[in-house]
Simulated scan of single mutants.
Amino acid sequence: MKPIKHLYLHFADGQRLALRFPQQSDDPAEVARGIRKQMESPVISIEVDGDLLIIPRASIKYLQISPAPMRMPETTVLGAELIE
C-alpha cells in the first residue's frame, strides 16, 4: 500500500479544501516534476471520488503538501517553522 499524502488548498477568499490521496510515484524526481508541472499550469486538476476538479490557480493563495515530498523544488528554503 502506498503512503498517504495530504493536500491543503488555501483559497484567497479564506476557504480551505483538504484532500487525502496515495503517493503518486515512488520516484522523487518524478514527484518533483509533477509538482512543477502543476505549479506552471493555470489550473490544478485533481481526481476526487471519480470526479475531476479543475481549480483556477488564481483563486489559490497557497498549497500545503503533507508530508513534504522527499525531493523539493530547487529554490525551496529548508528547515523553516511556522510562527504566530
Rank of each mutant, 00 (worst) to 15 (best):
M1V: 13
M1I: 07
M1P: 11
P3S: 02
I4C: 00
I4T: 04
K5A: 03
H6I: 02
L7I: 06
Y8C: 04
Y8V: 10
L9Q: 01
L9N: 00
L9A: 01
L9D: 01
H10G: 05
F11R: 11
F11D: 00
F11M: 07
A12R: 12
A12D: 06
A12E: 11
A12F: 02
D13S: 09
D13V: 06
G14C: 04
Q15G: 04
Q15A: 07
R16S: 03
L17D: 02
L17S: 03
A18Q: 07
A18H: 06
A18W: 02
L19K: 00
L19P: 03
R20T: 07
R20N: 07
F21A: 12
P22S: 00
P22N: 04
Q23M: 02
Q24I: 07
Q24P: 00
Q24F: 03
Q24L: 09
Q24T: 06
S25M: 04
D26P: 00
P28R: 02
P28W: 08
A29R: 12
A29S: 10
A29W: 09
A29E: 12
E30P: 01
V31G: 01
V31L: 11
V31M: 14
A32M: 14
A32L: 13
A32Y: 04
I35K: 06
R36D: 10
Q38C: 11
Q38R: 14
Q38N: 10
Q38W: 05
M39F: 11
M39I: 10
E40T: 15
E40D: 15
E40V: 14
P42Q: 14
P42E: 15
V43T: 15
V43I: 09
I44T: 12
I44N: 01
S45D: 11
S45V: 07
I46E: 00
E47I: 10
E47Q: 05
E47W: 02
V48C: 10
V48T: 10
V48K: 11
D49G: 12
D49H: 12
G50A: 13
G50S: 13
G50T: 14
D51G: 00
D51K: 10
L52Q: 06
L52M: 13
L52R: 10
L53W: 00
L53C: 00
L53R: 03
I54V: 11
I54Q: 02
I55K: 03
P56H: 06
P56F: 05
P56G: 04
P56I: 06
A58F: 08
A58I: 09
S59A: 08
S59D: 05
S59C: 01
S59Y: 01
I60E: 00
K61H: 11
K61W: 04
K61I: 02
K61G: 07
Y62H: 13
L63S: 09
Q64L: 08
I65R: 06
S66T: 14
S66Y: 11
P67I: 02
A68I: 05
A68F: 06
A68M: 08
P69D: 12
P69Y: 05
P69W: 06
M70H: 09
M70E: 15
M70K: 13
M70R: 13
R71H: 00
R71E: 08
R71Y: 02
M72F: 13
E74A: 05
E74M: 01
T75R: 00
T76P: 07
T76M: 09
V77F: 13
V77M: 14
L78I: 13
L78A: 10
G79M: 15
G79Q: 15
A80Y: 10
E81M: 08
L82G: 00
L82E: 01
I83A: 09
I83S: 12
I83T: 11
